[in-house]
Simulated assay, not measured.
Amino acid sequence: MKCPQVNLLAHLRSKTQVDLDTFDIDAARELGGCIDCTSNQYEYYTELAKSSRNELLDKSIKLAASIHGQFLSVTFNELAVEIAAVYLAMEIVPMVDGNMHIMANPRYSYSKQRIIETGKRLHHLCKVIQPSFNTSRLVMKVPATWEGLQACRELTQCNIKVLATTLFTMEQAVLAGEVGCVSISPFVHELKALFDEHYEDSNPRLDVCLQAQRWYTQQSLATKVKACATVGVDELLQLAGIDALTIVPDDLRELKSIYRSEIEVNELSLFKAVSLPEGKLAYPSYIDDEAKYRMDFDHAEDGKAQFKLCQAITIFCDYQNKAECLVQAAHAGNA
């Protein structure tokens, strides 16, 4: 008897929440059916660099000029990029049912106070740009440094939703759950592997995704796991059963175009009951123990996790700078 074939995208959606990883409005229109939409500095730069976005960029610059006096702790260019990110998000809001994710300026990854200010400012900007938008659907992505996660602790107390990004280890995942992040984004691969075709990450951390989800369940924490930075369709199928997957448009298109044996795709999943290790996970509390956290995180993966975190923040900072340069050039051209 021939084994039934299943569409890979439909199969994934039957097992896990599928989120859209882009602020490209055309891709959002094409790839309907996603729940949340996520973004980062790469998205802001690539969108604002398009000639079709000149009007949105000019609009962002004009609004930044009119309200910069309220936010003098940030530069004009930085404020304009944040405003542009909110404008881009508001375009996609009607196309998803869930939350919109906007990433904090990665230059503030090690500043608790600046991240707190950013979360409050993004909520204010949403109300200025689209007063009808329900800000309970806004999630700010925060790099999972000690300072960033402590900022998440305070932002959560202000009813501002946060996601811990650039996450590579269980130490980060444990602290993110303790501070009340609504979700985490474990990076399966080093971020560089997604931007440099000649660079190979030979140690994908699929295990962190599984362990984090098990940990949150065991601890009765509401934090969800949104895996990201995967490479190839098979890794996505391996993660079928995770709380959510953030998937780039090209991978969504590929999943939509492929049919495979139902038995084959089910066997790929790491969430099969027989494959999950038994017993309770054991991790210490980090929320009030900075020294313990830093020591354990610094030793994770023999120091490689610290390298991966710094590398990811550096890449995002580069795109933040590029986006601000676009603002500066456009602003000078309009003067």
Rank of each mutant, 00 (worst) to 15 (best):
T169P: 08
S185P: 01
K280V: 08
V188Q: 04
K59A: 07
C181L: 05
K59Y: 04
N105F: 03
K280Y: 10
M90R: 07
E264I: 01
D26Y: 06
V174I: 13
I263E: 11
M140K: 04
S39I: 04
Q157H: 08
C209D: 05
S39K: 00
L276H: 05
V142I: 15
P131Y: 06
I25V: 07
G177V: 10
D296A: 07
A164N: 03
A323K: 01
L63Q: 13
I67Y: 11
T16W: 05
E235P: 10
L149C: 08
V128M: 15
A291R: 11
F307T: 11
I102E: 04
L125M: 11
S66M: 11
A291T: 15
H331W: 12
N266S: 11
F187H: 10
Q150Y: 05
T156M: 09
P106I: 04
I61E: 09
S220L: 15
Q320G: 01
F297Q: 11
E267I: 02
G232T: 06
D289Q: 04
Y293Q: 09
A80G: 07
V162Q: 07
H331N: 14
S261Q: 10
S111A: 09
K2V: 12
P94Q: 05
M295V: 08
P204Y: 02
A240F: 01
T75Q: 06
G333T: 03
P204D: 12
A49T: 04
Y108S: 07
V327L: 06
E264K: 04
T217D: 10
S39N: 11
L221M: 15
L276A: 09
